[in-house]
Amino acid sequence: MITLKQVQKSYFNTATPLQVLKGIDMHVAEGEFVSIMGSSGSGKSTLLNILGILDDYDSGSYELAGTLVKNLSQTTAARYRNRFLGFVFQSFNLLPFKTAQENVALPLYYQKVSRSKRNQIALEYLDKVGIRDWAHHLPAELSGGQKQRVAIARALISKPRVVLADEPTGALDSVTSQEVINLFRQINRDEKLTMLVVTHENEVAAQTDRIIRLKDGQILLNE
């Protein structure tokens, strides 16, 4: 599903150019549930942003579901993100002025699905992540775990091929974290979804199929 070959990435907006990824080779099969670990600053988020077509890379190649992702226009990148990818962030990134249901429905708005249809689908997904009753609440009225469930429902609603999560449990307590991981597992199993989760928590990583360890912009271990 995902194949990276010698992907390199540097930031040039710093005083001296900073090479963050120094030639990444990796492969993730369809339906795999993979975690990416590494110390802070090792380039995990950078890697995930490239996988999520939120950022460009300098050299090498990235194939997503058999399509080469390189030098895409903004519009094409937006379409690929919308169709192929779902995102879950550490800080949830819900729109504060929209209800849980409207937040979940947003990706379908950009697929030009009619309002009533997408609200109905959003409700189904909220049900799937177990917070249907909170559909009409604003994010501010929800707990951290509930917010992350809304975010997960939003990541799933467009039926993506890959879900990318950057420290999804970073802002949650251990009990809630476990619930979120269970949810991921269940989705991975039920929907055969490919999932990549960045984490620095060993308990989280241990529950995935495979751990990719990053150090100084290189893959240290591929277990």
Partner: peptide, 16 residues
């Protein structure tokens, strides 16, 4: 900015 960033991550095109 943040809202627009989120929208883009979710698939909003520049023209939208």
């Amino acid at each position: 900015t943040r809202e627009i960033g989120i929208r883009k991550a979710l698939g909003a095109t520049p023209s939208s």
